[in-house]
């Protein structure tokens, strides 16, 4: 009798898990999600991940290359300022940051770890990632970023700091460096406060 009950319970659990799994698969990424990109990334702590694995929380994304003399350090500073402004305005932590390199030839995990330590970017709040597999130029293009290598080895590129929602849809983007873009700070603040309200911290 006990054995029958155990079997029934096990069966119920397995059916229920199966259904939950199916439901998760059914919630496919929205048509305008940049997480549709088939890209495999490796971060400065050797962690492999896909853009789709970032699903569930808003993220700030930008693209860089480690040997970039000026624009990329300025981009990192701008994101630091945006996050500080959001934290002081809302009292909530600003979203995680993912910086994707478009120079996988030179940007090894060590180079990215060096960049993170030079700019004092704590892991895993800041993930600096290199493309391992897939089409990084297409991923960049979905963010509005384009780049080309110049004959001297550095890159012509534009800067986009992009706020993605929990499903990888673009909420806002800015190219403003120097002082934080107030509209962008607004959007990040709103989404941070909303995220915090939706998942209240346990006592």
């Amino acid at each position: 009798m006990i054995r029958q009950w155990t079997l029934l319970i096990l069966l119920t659990i397995s059916v229920w898990t199966g259904a939950a799994q199916a439901a998760a698969d059914a919630t496919a990424l929205p048509a305008d999600s940049v997480y549709r990109s088939a890209l495999t990334l490796r971060d400065q702590a050797e962690g492999l991940f896909t853009p789709a694995s970032l699903r569930g929380h808003p993220v700030i994304v930008s693209m860089i290359y480690a040997s970039c003399p000026e624009a990329c350090p300025l981009t990192i500073d701008a994101i630091k300022q945006i996050r500080a402004a959001v934290k002081s305005r809302t009292g909530h932590a600003a979203p995680q940051v993912v910086l994707v390199s478009f120079d996988p030839v030179h940007d090894t995990v060590q180079a990215l770890a060096g960049m993170a330590s030079m700019h004092q970017l704590p892991y895993p709040v800041w993930r600096l990632a290199r493309p391992e597999q897939g089409d990084v130029r297409a991923f960049a293009a979905t963010l509005g970023v384009s780049y080309r290598m110049r004959p001297n080895g550095d890159f012509s590129h534009n800067i986009e700091i992009v706020l993605l929602d929990a499903d990888g849809r673009i909420v806002a983007s800015t190219s403003k460096l120097g002082t934080p873009d107030p509209d962008f700070v607004d959007r990040v603040s709103r989404i941070s406060a909303h995220t915090a309200a939706a998942s209240p911290r346990l006592p």
Binding site: L74, S146, R148, N158
Partner: peptide
């Protein structure tokens, strides 16, 4: 062409005040 969009962006941004011009087709 593969790199068409990058033909219309400037080399590495040097002047922070100018970088808002560096949009895709700007």
């Amino acid at each position: 062409v593969d790199d068409y969009a990058a033909m219309f962006v400037n080399a590495d941004a040097r002047d922070p005040d100018q970088t808002n011009l560096l949009t895709l087709c700007g």
